[in-house]
Design a protein around this nucleic acid. Structure first.
Lengths: 195, 195
DNA sequence: GCTATAGTTGGTCAATCGTCCAAGGCGATT
DNA sequence: AATCGCCTTGGACGATTGACCAACTATAGC
């Protein structure tokens, strides 16, 4: 019955701290996450925070990017698997309705966007995540010859984040209900001239 | 040479504090605005904050809503004055490009959205502002018989806020460049079936 | 002139903050 | 058993926080 080795316990502490940070960033806000609250949630002594991480900011940065990456990758798979661009839009919007705009996951994203405007390193890392996802979405939209797939992808991503923001104010708001309208953005042929 | 009356000076202090709050919320973040930083920016002693306002939160709440209301009202006039729904969309998006996503005004909005998820009173006030603006945008879109003007208005507002969020990561992003695509959302006739 | 009223000052209070560190614990290697 | 390296503990440090208050000043009304 060999107990956990010393290094294993260390890894566990790191993971607990990151998990606690993922929860707390959304719950109480990026700037309200303190070393002591963090350690308490993780079930760990507060002195460990600065042993395992260079600073509180570094911990929060890592927690945020590690939380967002798999979610964006999963969403990218979702749109890639859709049979048509219109279905990709629909699947993406339906996926958003898993979130209420006030849950820790939704708020983690918004908090991270905000923190990125004041942390150059975080901004670079998030920019990469967002760019990768936009590329995946652009590819999904371009399959049927969309005239401006990248612009459409940009719009859709803005809609997703914007809807999350607005859901926080109005829980009745549903992303899925906007899908019929947003299918227009996925169509290869635009809707004739405007005048 | 009658100097300012006592009540006038008090009103001036209140206005200075609110103006300082409007700047600082975006600059350093909602939770980082302290009574002392606020007072320093306003050129006022910190003891005055709790004389003129019930609490720091109440001051920030008032500053945020008073900053957002005129901007949303101006935007509502913009879309109401547009000759067609498509032009309303275009005007709205062009207006967004006045902001970079990292300026205090853009960030004030995002900070307020976030703060509203943790402050019921602020949420109610912002919900009213957003609802009023959506009504104005819906009316502008409905003028030519749009089949789902409210959904289109909801999408456009989400796009606006979402683009601001993304601009903070990528300054090259331009809302105006998305206008041609988003005009599709303003058209009264949808784009034929999808398959 | 005197008193009420509104505004202002400078400071206190307990609580919390991020960061750092000396000392000790503990599994692995020799 | 001794040593080495990673991990952990508990507390210290100065700084900052929101809130509050007694004393003081200045205007307004009588």
């Amino acid at each position: 019955m060999a107990g956990p080795t010393n290094a294993e316990r260390g890894r566990d502490v790191r993971e607990r701290l990151l998990a606690a940070a993922r929860e707390l960033i959304g719950e109480i806000g990026w700037n309200a996450v303190s070393t002591r609250i963090l350690a308490e949630r993780a079930g760990v002594r507060s002195g460990l925070v600065h042993y395992h991480f260079a600073s509180l900011q570094a911990l929060l940065r890592q927690a945020a990017t590690e939380a967002m990456r798999p979610m964006l990758e999963q969403a990218a798979e979702l749109v890639a698997a859709a049979p048509s661009p219109g279905d990709a839009v629909e699947a993406l919007l339906a996926d958003i309705d898993r979130f209420t705009g006030t849950d820790p996951t939704s708020l983690l994203f918004v908090e991270a966007y905000l923190a990125a405007t004041r942390d150059d390193l975080l901004r670079d890392q998030m920019h990469e995540l967002v760019t990768d996802f936009r590329a995946a979405l652009t590819a999904a939209l371009a399959r049927t010859g969309h005239p401006a797939p990248e612009a459409a992808a940009t719009v859709l991503m803005a809609v997703v984040d914007g809807v999350l923001l607005h859901k926080g104010l109005d829980p009745q708001l549903s992303a899925g209900s906007l899908a019929p309208l947003l299918r227009r953005l996925a169509d290869p042929e635009p809707n004739g001239a405007n005048e």
